[in-house]
Design a protein around this nucleic acid. Structure first.
Length: 272
DNA sequence: AGGTTCGCCTGCGGGC
DNA sequence: TGCCCGCAGGCGAACC
């Protein structure tokens, strides 16, 4: 599952190949994604070129002259640059073909939780983006912000930091990791965090995301880069996927619980 | 309105 | 070997 660092890695990876390249056509083989791909996608893209590739949370924004292609990789999505001759495989749903190019941009997504949407006008006003919280790596996501918006909220801290309306793009893996590093139990009511704990949590969220981006988006088993290379898969995860194994800090066996139906791994000794 | 659960999907691993 | 089952989960929609 691509998390924010993986999406950022993809963004950086495709930039050199897509910027200023004129799009000849789009080939859509399967339009049933999270939302159906518009039948006019090809018409919208034809003759345009990508001016800029931005990211908002886990959404990629390919900005063109007449609008923006909004892409989400969902659980199993990939966005790769592949040679023009490469035949599409089973779950290769969309190809974006450049005029006279020797390669194309291919969207693949076995589970089809992802999305490929055309947006006319300002993409930030699009309903999927308009209500997103601040970027986790941005300055506006800070201790004061987390403290302020958590007051009076009766929700678990893990659910809170995974709420995209609070902060955009913190997924399950990094929520687990950040809470461990912050020494905060995932099932704490967010309202019970003091300002110091908010500070600690904000800084660990930023730290784990930055470290993963610097490592090239490597934490996921099935992640592939824009070049189609698998991630380096360094062992950087301290709690996620390590239930039953010893805590790297104190040696206590890590426990698992379900929070909002998502796997939550923590150290009962280090996280309070 | 805040909080919780649902549903969309396929691949994979384990049990038999 | 092959089938069945459960699990994985981002996130908007629907529900309470």
């Amino acid at each position: 599952m691509p998390e924010l660092p993986e999406v950022e890695t993809v963004r950086r990876g495709i930039i050199p190949s897509v910027i200023d390249k004129v799009i000849e056509k789009a080939v859509v083989r399967e339009r049933r994604l999270r939302w159906p791909i518009t039948p006019v996608l090809g018409k919208k893209l034809c003759g345009q070129h990508v001016e800029q590739v931005d990211r908002r949370g886990k959404y990629l924004l390919l900005k063109m002259q007449k609008g923006t292609l909004l892409i989400h990789l969902g659980m199993s999505g990939q966005l790769r640059i592949v040679p023009s001759g490469q035949k599409p495989a089973k779950h290769d749903h969309v190809d974006i073909i450049f005029a006279g190019g020797s390669y194309l941009l291919r969207f693949t997504d076995p589970r089809r939780f992802g999305a490929v949407l055309w947006v006319d006008g300002d993409p930030l006003q699009h309903k999927l983006l308009a209500k997103l919280g601040p970027e986790p790596l941005g300055e506006s996501f800070n201790a004061a912000y987390l403290f302020k918006y958590s007051r009076g909220r009766k929700v678990l801290v893990k659910s809170f930091i995974m709420d995209s309306h609070i902060v955009a793009g913190v997924g399950n893996i990094y929520a687990n990791e950040a809470l461990f590093l912050a020494g905060i139990h995932p099932a704490r009511l967010v309202n019970s965090l003091n300002l110091g704990e908010c500070h600690k949590l904000v800084s660990t969220i930023k730290r784990v995301l930055k470290a993963a981006i610097n490592a090239g988006g490597t934490t996921l088993r099935d992640f592939v880069t824009a070049e189609g290379k698998p991630g380096y898969f360094q062992q950087v995860l301290l709690v996620y996927g390590r239930v039953g194994e010893p805590c790297v800090h104190c040696g206590t066996v890590l426990l698992e619980m379900r929070i909002a139906q998502r796997s939550t791994v923590y150290c009962s000794q280090c996280q309070n």
